[in-house]
Each structure stands twice: as structure tokens, then as C-alpha cells.
Design a protein around this nucleic acid. Structure first.
Lengths: 174, 174
DNA sequence: AAAAACCTACCGATCGTTCGGAAATCTTGT
DNA sequence: ACAAGATTTCCGAACGATCGGTAGGTTTTT
């Protein structure tokens, strides 16, 4: 579904991959739409487990921002955050489900936004719009999932550090 | 198709929007797959017309980079580059079509990459991986098309300038 | 024996695509 | 200026295939 999209992936396709028939699979899921919802919930669970919770342990905002970037990129490269790519298929959900997902997404955005706010009060921030800076930073990171498969010759550690440098240079006075 | 994806958009949907039956529509297109290909070609045509060609007129690499960023963001916000979002549906094309699109995409990447190379020779560039920096910059820009509809209260001119600042700060010594 | 997991077979709906013909438009001869 | 013919545009109807989903029964596990 990550590769072919929600509409391009049939229940039969999924059943075949997990070694079942379509009817057998339906014993475990409530429907295609609900399956997408569960996957997106799982994606956010992994996001919180791998990125948000560890980052919240870091008191210093600059170190926290680095921690967020490192862990987020690392999670993408390790495949642990693979399903976050399906966020772009959220319009297939009903309104209540979309709101649930939107809330969790906004929570992550708020964490990064608050971190930038702290950095601003410490005078470390460039003269930039915090909201836009936050979104741009997160888009730079999450965008890696889109293009990295096509540039897999790039060393993973190198990409992590380059991304940290890119993001921090864009945001902090240096 | 931009909103609902390739698989989620039927020929009937398209025909209805353009005020025809699908049989009538089929007089103008060769098939759904070829329609996507034509749209992506058109997207690249617009990209060249609105961004690449004007940018190539600029000799100074720093001013050229600013020109690319401004025009690309402007094109997204004005809707002129709307169809570039369908680049993510390129896997629905056959191999030959994918290669054609990949070539044009690489050409744009090469333009930005060469500009960063010039800036490096002028000593204006940060210590960064040019390839990764190029991709991150372009992802920051093109990513706007993903999230701007949800933050439409942001002033367009403000967003353009903030994006230029974000990108240049990430890349240039300042 | 109870429950969970799974399958065969099928449902109505919709998918992309095609075909023959009807309108509508354009070109041409006079 | 206008009718005749040619072309383009569009539609109704249908095609085989596949879609998401279900009913009922069989196998496997507890």
C-alpha cells in the first residue's frame, strides 16, 4: 500500500502477501477503510515510541531538536516509520477518523514548534516564522522517505548528520 | 486525481468533471495510464516555463537560487504547478514512460545541483553534501504543495520569503 | 466441545475499455 | 449562399475483469 497507494492496493493483494484468502483476512480486519485507520494509528504509535518519547526526555531545546531529527531520520531509514508515508492517504478515512489522526499529527508539530519557541527565548533562533520553520523542517525530514529509496547508495549515517546540519543551519543562528 | 490519487480517481469521475460521458472522454485520451503520462509531461512543461527557463537567464548563482525558489513556490501557490503533485503516482506508468519522466526530473535536480556547485566554488556554501542539500532544498519547496491547503491562512508573500530564507540559511554561509 | 482461524463460492457494484451510431461541426463543390 | 459530403465529437449500451464485502461451512487450535 505504501508503494501502490490505497486505491491501487486491493484486499486480495494484501491477503495474498500475508498468505491468506480475502475471506480469511476479513476475519482479522473490519474493512479496508478501518485497516488504513489502524495502520495510521500504528504509525503514530511508532512515531511516539521511537521519536517523541525519547525526545521529551531531553531538557535542552537545541539538543532536543537534534534528538528529534536524528531519531526521525533514523526511523525512516530503518523502516520503523515506513507507514507514516500512508499519511497522505488520510482522505480515504471518514471525518471522525481523520480528526483523530489530525490531532496526533498536530501534537508532533506542537512539540517541534514549542522547541523552536524555547530556542527563540534563548536568542538562538534566526529571524524566521516559527510555524513555517517548523513545517519546513519536518517536511525536509519526512520527505526523505519519498526519495531515499531512489538514492540508496547514500550512506545512512552520513544522511542523518547532513540532515541534522541542514535543519539546524536553517533554523539556528550559527 | 491530485486529491484522491490515481487509483482513487475513475475515468467516470474525470468525465463527469469535464462534462462528458466516459465514452466521450475516450475520444480524446488513449487510456488512463497515458492520461497520467500526459499530465506529468504537462507538469514538467509548466515547470520549465515558469521556473527553469527564467532561472537560466540569471547568471549569478546566488540570485539564480533565489529565483528558482521564489518562482517554484509562487507556482505552487498560484496553482500553476498543481500537477507536479502527481509525480508521486509515477509508478503507475510503464518503464519507458517512467524513464522519460525521471530524465526531466533529474534535469531540474541537476540545475539546482550545478548552482550549488558554483556557490561552493565562490566559497559561499556551507560545509554540506551538495547532493543531499539539493534534494532537501527541493523537498522543502515542493512539500509546500502538500501542506499549504491545510494552512491557507498563511500569507502567500510571507511564505515565499520565509521559504527563501529557510533554504538559503540552510545552504549558504551567512 | 467450544472458539478461533480460514476457505470456497458468491454478491452487487464499479472498474477501464470498446463499439456502433447519432449529433454537431467543418470542408468542399457549385 | 447553400446543399452534400466528410470529419470530428460525443453518447448509450455493453464487455470482461476486478473491486470490497458476505454467507456458510470446514479445519485447526484451545
Amino acid at each position: 500500500m505504501v508503494q501502490k497507494g490505497y486505491g491501487g492496493t486491493s484486499i486480495s493483494d494484501i491477503a495474498q502477501v500475508v498468505g491468506m484468502t480475502k475471506a480469511g483476512l476479513y476475519h482479522h480486519i473490519a474493512g479496508k477503510q478501518d485497516l488504513l485507520f489502524q495502520i495510521l494509528q500504528h504509525a503514530h504509535d511508532e512515531m511516539e515510541r521511537l521519536v517523541i518519547e525519547p525526545a521529551k526526555q531531553v531538557g535542552d531545546p537545541e539538543r532536543r531538536l537534534i534528538e528529534i531529527t536524528r531519531r526521525h531520520v533514523r526511523g525512516i531509514l530503518d523502516g520503523g516509520l515506513e507507514f507514516t508515508l500512508l499519511y497522505r492517504e488520510r482522505h480515504h478515512l471518514d471525518d471522525a477518523q481523520q480528526e483523530t489522526i489530525a490531532l496526533r499529527t498536530r501534537a508532533y508539530l506542537a512539540l517541534v514548534g514549542a522547541t523552536l519557541q524555547e530556542l527563540a527565548m534563548e536568542g538562538k533562533l534566526r529571524d524566521l516564522d516559527i510555524q513555517i520553520g517548523t513545517i519546513h523542517l519536518l517536511k525536509t525530514i519526512s520527505g526523505i522517505a519519498d526519495w531515499y529509496p531512489m538514492f540508496s547508495e547514500i550512506d545512512e549515517d552520513h544522511l542523518v548528520e547532513q540532515t541534522v546540519n541542514f535543519g539546524l543551519s536553517a533554523i539556528l543562528k550559527r
